[in-house]
């Protein structure tokens, strides 16, 4: 029998009528990895999570979670996973303890001593020990999220699925949640698959990421390797009156890997960018284009996305 890792996906497709939400996805996630599925809204991330967690059936292809086939053995798959949903799914009129207690009963965590120990441990790890009895409806967004994350970990799943774990939270709370996830993960050692459309999130948390767009995986690898693939720095030049001359002149320069024109902005990838700035200004002058600003930065996953799709990834559409 071949090693199926924590999650093995084989030619997975999902159609909604004519719309192809997922197209022939194949990937393998190793045990103990934090794997990120990164892509804009509507890329198919949630569909993927729903299929992996047996809430949706694939149109074709299959996947194995913890060695169990999601189409043939859904119950064992469900036993192997913990899931934190994109939207808040808690009993708001109950307290934090009751919410976790219900979950512990669903997953048959026995004996009672162990159950209580687990609940206290996790509620402590997410920093909610002082709010165990308060009704969850009085919690802030970040607190609710932390409670849901504690719940996901509670039954010690082999694989934890996090669907957009920090969607709609402010940057500070988001960072806070990441730290909690990493902290628990060091203690619990499990495989985590998370979806996100925040580049920094994938960069901060994940050992490996797959960039997904329009239902297809367009790049996969370690965040660092993906960024290194761009071989160089990102230069963005803000100009006032972009014209054909400038475009043609820029195209003539050597060692420019990727050239993108967005309205009044030029983005390009090149090595030793700093030493070329003077040259760019020169060329712009010759082409009678006014340069407003030039910035050089190391590539982010955002740039990787742009590099592969030619589009920017925005997180404001939802």
């Amino acid at each position: 029998m071949k090693n199926k890792g924590a999650i093995l996906v084989e030619n997975l497709s999902k159609n909604y009528g004519d719309f192809k939400a997922l197209k022939e996805i194949s990937l393998k996630i190793n045990e103990g990895e934090i794997f990120g599925l990164l892509g804009p809204n509507g890329a198919g991330k949630s569909t993927f999570i729903h299929i992996i967690s047996t809430l949706l059936r694939p149109t074709s292809g299959t996947a194995f979670v913890n060695g169990y086939d999601i189409t043939k053995d859904p119950r064992n798959v469900r036993k192997s996973i913990g899931l934190v949903f994109q939207d808040t799914i808690l009993d708001l009129e109950l307290g934090a303890l009751d919410n976790l207690d219900f979950h512990a009963r669903l997953y048959n965590i026995v004996p009672v001593k162990l159950k209580e120990k687990r609940i206290n441990e996790l509620i402590d790890l997410v920093g909610l020990s002082n709010y165990t009895k308060r009704k969850v409806e009085t919690f802030s967004g970040g607190m609710k999220r932390r409670l849901e994350i504690a719940r996901g970990f509670l039954h010690n799943p082999k694989v934890l699925l996090l669907d957009e774990p920090t969607l709609g939270l402010d940057p500070q709370t988001r960072r806070h949640i990441w730290e909690h996830i990493l902290k628990i993960r060091i203690k619990e050692k499990m495989t985590i698959l998370l979806t996100t459309h925040y580049m920094e999130e994938a960069d901060f948390l994940c050992d490996r990421v797959a960039i997904i767009d329009k239902g297809k995986i367009i790049a996969i690898g370690k965040p660092r390797d993906l960024k290194n693939k761009l071989k160089g720095d990102i230069v963005s030049i803000q100009v006032k009156n972009l014209n054909k001359n400038l475009i043609n002149n820029l195209k003539k320069i050597k060692h420019i890997k990727k050239l993108e024109f967005l309205q009044d902005e030029i983005k390009l990838v090149t090595t030793n960018a700093e030493s070329k700035i003077a040259k760019f200004v020169d060329i712009a002058k010759k082409s009678k284009v006014i340069v407003q600003s030039i910035s050089v930065h190391k590539p982010t996953l955002e740039d990787v996305f742009l590099y592969y799709t030619g589009r920017e990834m925005r997180d404001d559409v939802s």
Partner: peptide, 12 residues
């Protein structure tokens, strides 16, 4: 509207 997912994804 929501909570059913928590129930459906549980091994029960």
């Amino acid at each position: 509207r929501g909570f059913i997912k928590e129930l459906l994804v549980a091994p029960i």
